[in-house]
């Protein structure tokens, strides 16, 4: 680019990346927002402008409100359990021995299995009649659970699957975080007569805060976008008890062909995930401690 003025050079340099980003991210987002103000069935050349009609329809729809509740509940439970159990696990596994390395590998393995396989595997494990889980519970004298078939337990069952899948990844990231804590800090604490719990609360946890924030936000965003397990294991049922945002969008878009309605739900999802991400960066800049 010999003739590009100096002032424009940076823009010229990022133009290719910007073009790809615009084409595959900005344009679809803009188009989705555009569609959310229309009624369209995917096929007809006609798009009817309805203003905020789709949003009004959605926000007065009991199913959509339940979907929001389900999404929030699923997300909160998954994040709490998946990070809350990973931390003690990481504290335990953070040492050098063959056994600990083996356990690390074992709990990490679900992370590399495709969600489709995971869903099929757990559908079978949770089968009320032939499933391994009920077989195990029977041993302890706990009566057969209906797992995915009961509106009361279906969402929790999906949470269990998600926790099982994410636990290993979270644990490994926590271990990496623990290993980045300078050992002399812990030694200084030992010389300061710090008890294990005090050391954890006053030194380890603050030093781990970047890792913790990272995992919470990654898990939050991932959980809000849960789709595969629901599509394969429950199709949102029974009676909408596991219907969540992305599955709702999918149903409206590709089963009922109400693209405008689906787009409006998509905008809501975008706002939620966007807010979470923004909040993450704000917190990151304020609350996180670096060593140096």
């Amino acid at each position: 680019m010999p003739m590009v003025p100096k002032r424009l050079k940076p823009y010229a340099m990022i133009a290719p990346a910007l073009a790809v980003f615009s084409l595959f991210y900005l344009y679809p987002i803009g188009y989705m927002i555009h569609l959310s103000f229309h009624e369209w069935n995917f096929i007809s050349p006609e798009k009817t402008y309805v203003g905020l009609g789709n949003y009004r329809e959605m926000l007065t729809d009991d199913v959509f409100l339940q979907v929001l509740r389900n999404s929030a509940l699923y997300t909160v439970m998954t994040v709490l359990l998946a990070t809350g159990t990973a931390l003690p696990l990481a504290l335990w596994l953070n040492r050098k021995s063959g056994f600990h390395a083996f356990v690390q590998g074992a709990i990490f393995s679900p992370h590399i299995i495709s969600l489709v396989s995971v869903s099929l595997l757990w559908s079978w494990l949770m089968d009320p009649e032939y499933g391994l889980l009920n077989g195990l519970l029977h041993w302890f004298g706990i009566g057969p659970l209906k797992w995915l078939n009961d509106p009361g337990t279906a969402l929790l069952s999906l949470v269990i699957v998600a926790v099982w899948k994410n636990l290993g990844y979270n644990t490994i990231v926590f271990i990496a975080g623990l290993q980045s804590i300078p050992p002399e800090l812990l030694e200084a604490a030992a010389l300061d007569r710090s008890k294990p719990w005090t050391t954890f609360r006053r030194i380890i946890l603050p030093m781990l805060s970047p890792t913790l924030f990272f995992l919470v936000i990654i898990n939050l965003i991932g959980s809000f976008q849960v789709f595969e397990t629901i599509a394969i294991m429950t199709q949102g049922g029974p009676v909408h008890s596991t219907n969540t945002l992305v599955y709702y969008i999918y149903e409206y878009g590709f089963r009922y062909f109400k693209i405008g309605h689906a787009s409006a739900a998509g905008v809501i999802l975008l706002v939620i995930v966007g807010t979470l991400t923004l909040g993450y960066f704000r917190l990151l800049s304020r609350r996180v401690h670096y060593y140096g």
Binding site: P182, L185, E187, A190, L191, R193, R202, I203, Y291
Partner: peptide, 29 residues
């Protein structure tokens, strides 16, 4: 154990607790 030996150590790279203020660092022990 180290804390009970009545020994205080100054580390080469100081090993100050980064999340605590100067006062909290000194007070911790």
């Amino acid at each position: 154990e180290p804390g009970k030996r009545d020994v205080a150590m100054v580390f080469q790279n100081y090993a100050l607790y980064p999340n605590m203020t100067v006062r909290e660092n000194i007070e911790f022990g």
